[in-house]
Simulated assay, not measured.
Amino acid sequence: MQSALIDVRTGSRETVHDLTRHCSDFLREEASGRDGLLHVFVPHATAGIALIELGAGSDDDLLAALGELLPADDRWRHAHGARGHGRSHVMPALIAPYASIPVLAGAMALGTWQSVALVDLNVDNPARHVRLSFLPG
């Protein structure tokens, strides 16, 4: 298995950050035209990985839906950091901290409008790491 850790700066606001190019670049080096599986994992307790259409409003819709489902208010028992920080710790139960994507001939077998994205509601930590692993078939 080949693996690499990439650093991502998410800034100081909630974000859906596109990782697709990073994943493609990693596979170009590591898969070398082979079939297998790409595993994308974020080793943080307050972030997730989503396969979603980006750039057409879906990313903003996702953040709005998470805002309604997990409001940034004082209801959370886990209460250090920014207001509503506890919701960031609940989010990975809804948007898992990983995704596995089939790789065919060295490229992700994504649907036409699918992208790989890091979902991060935690405004207290703008530095994230994402582990990309290629498991050859």
Rank of each mutant, 00 (worst) to 15 (best):
G55Q: 14
G33T: 14
G86W: 05
Q2L: 15
I95W: 04
G55H: 15
S32G: 11
R128G: 00
L62T: 13
A4S: 03
D25T: 15
L62A: 09
C23Q: 06
R28L: 13
G84D: 02
L110Y: 02
G33S: 10
S32L: 15
H89Q: 08
Q114N: 01
L62H: 14
L69A: 01
G111E: 07
V42R: 13
R34A: 15
T112Q: 06
D61M: 13
D18K: 11
N122S: 03
R9H: 14
G33C: 08
R13F: 07
N125R: 07
E29V: 03
H44T: 11
L51I: 15
R131E: 13
D59R: 15
T112W: 08
A56M: 06
R131W: 13
S88K: 05
D60A: 03
L37W: 03
L121Q: 04
A50N: 04
H17F: 12
A117K: 10
I49M: 06
G48K: 10
A4V: 09
L62R: 11
L51A: 08
D18P: 06
C23P: 03
I49E: 12
R28M: 15
S115T: 13
L94F: 15
D73K: 00
D60P: 07
F134T: 00
A96M: 05
H85R: 07
A127T: 03
L37Q: 13
G86S: 06
T112V: 10
C23A: 09
H39M: 11
L118S: 05
D18W: 12
T10Q: 10
E30S: 05
I6F: 14
L63H: 11
H22W: 12
T15Y: 10
A31F: 14
T15W: 12
D59Y: 14
R131T: 08
H39C: 11
D7N: 12
L70V: 08
L110P: 04
P92N: 04
A117C: 12
R21K: 07
R13G: 00
A45T: 15
V103E: 01
L110E: 00
A56N: 07
G84C: 04
P102K: 06
R87L: 04
S100R: 03
V130T: 02
S115D: 01
L69D: 05
I6N: 08
R9Q: 14
L118E: 09
H85S: 02
A56S: 15
D35A: 07
G84F: 03
L19T: 06
G137T: 13
T112E: 12
V40T: 08
R77S: 11
D35I: 10
